[in-house]
Structure formats: C-alpha cells, structure tokens
C-alpha cells in the first residue's frame, strides 16, 4: 500500500503517494528530478546525499519519504545557480574545493548547516562538521579553507603542527 507524502521541497509544496520503502533520496531524484543529491553509498556512510530537512543537515538515504511528510526540504539546487552561486559554493569554487563533484552537493549542504549553527567556524570546527562527508578526490584542504573563509573567520589556527 502506498504512503502519502506531503512536503515542501525547495519552497514548493509537493503532494504524492509513494511506496513506503522509497527513501527521501530516491523520492527527490526519481519523483522530482532533483538529481543534485547523489547516491554515494545508500548505507548512510558517505554524505553525498545530504539535504536540509527543516533546516538541518540529514542523509536523505536514511530518511523515508513517507516519514519526512510534513517537513521542509532544501536541496543543493535551491541554494544557488551556476550563474549566481551561494557564498559557500562561490568559496568552494575559488579554493578548488572540489574535483569530480560527486560528493560536492553533500559538502555544500553540510557547510550551509554548519554556518547556520556556527557562523564563523574555525578550521577544526569545519573539519568536525565535514567528518561525515567522504571525498575521495580533493584531500579536503581546499574545501576546509573555503568554508572557513565563507564564514569570515580569520582563524589562524594551523591545520597542522
């Protein structure tokens, strides 16, 4: 039996019925065509599928679409466009904080969540916040620098040493 889903996604109301086992990730991608959240592992371990659920970062592969009913969902597509990047996206771009781009939407979401809680995070706080996001390309250096900068922190805590 299908389950009703009533959500606000990227500021637009959505109302459909889905198979109960549909995750929020598959719902966003397959039903709404929002392919920015990526299926990196579907086991809750990589963070590539991160979205904001009622303003807080969650793994959309670990949320049932039906269970999210009544919530507000923001995906990476809502934060900026290629022509008008969100400040976090802009900073990641300038710092070469991405390579293949597959983990990138999840990084952007985690960073936006962090900056909403801690507006000017330190290097260490950024690393802690990104701890659940796996990136295989960059080695994280550019993305950490970018997010620290996006928060406007002039933290001089060394990365190492």
């Amino acid at each position: 039996m299908n389950a009703p889903v009533e959500l606000v996604v990227n500021a637009r109301p959505v109302r459909v019925e889905v198979e109960p086992r549909t995750t929020l990730l598959d719902f966003l991608r397959d039903e709404l065509g929002l392919t920015g959240a990526h299926a990196g592992c579907e086991q809750g371990a990589c963070g590539a599928c991160n979205v904001l659920l009622d303003g807080r970062v969650v793994r959309s592969c670990l949320v049932l679409a039906a269970g999210a009913s009544g919530s507000d969902v923001t995906t990476v597509e809502h934060l900026g466009t290629p022509d008008l990047l969100h400040p976090v996206q802009e900073a990641l771009w300038r710092h070469h904080g991405l390579q293949c781009g597959y983990c990138t939407p999840g990084i952007v979401i985690a960073a936006v969540d962090l900056l909403s809680r801690i507006p000017s995070p330190t290097d260490a706080q950024v690393r802690e916040a990104l701890n659940g996001n796996l990136c295989r390309c960059t080695g994280y250096a550019g993305m950490v620098a970018a997010i620290v900068e996006a928060g406007g922190s002039h933290d001089d805590e060394p990365v190492i040493g």
């Binding site: 970062v57 969650v58 969540d113 802690e128 659940g132």
Partner: peptide, 9 residues
C-alpha cells in the same frame, strides 16, 4: 555519536 547529519535524526 555518528556524524552531524545522523545526529540530527
């Protein structure tokens, strides 16, 4: 416990 994203749920 887990990661920031899992702790939110």
């Amino acid at each position: 416990v887990g990661h920031p994203a899992t702790r939110n749920l």
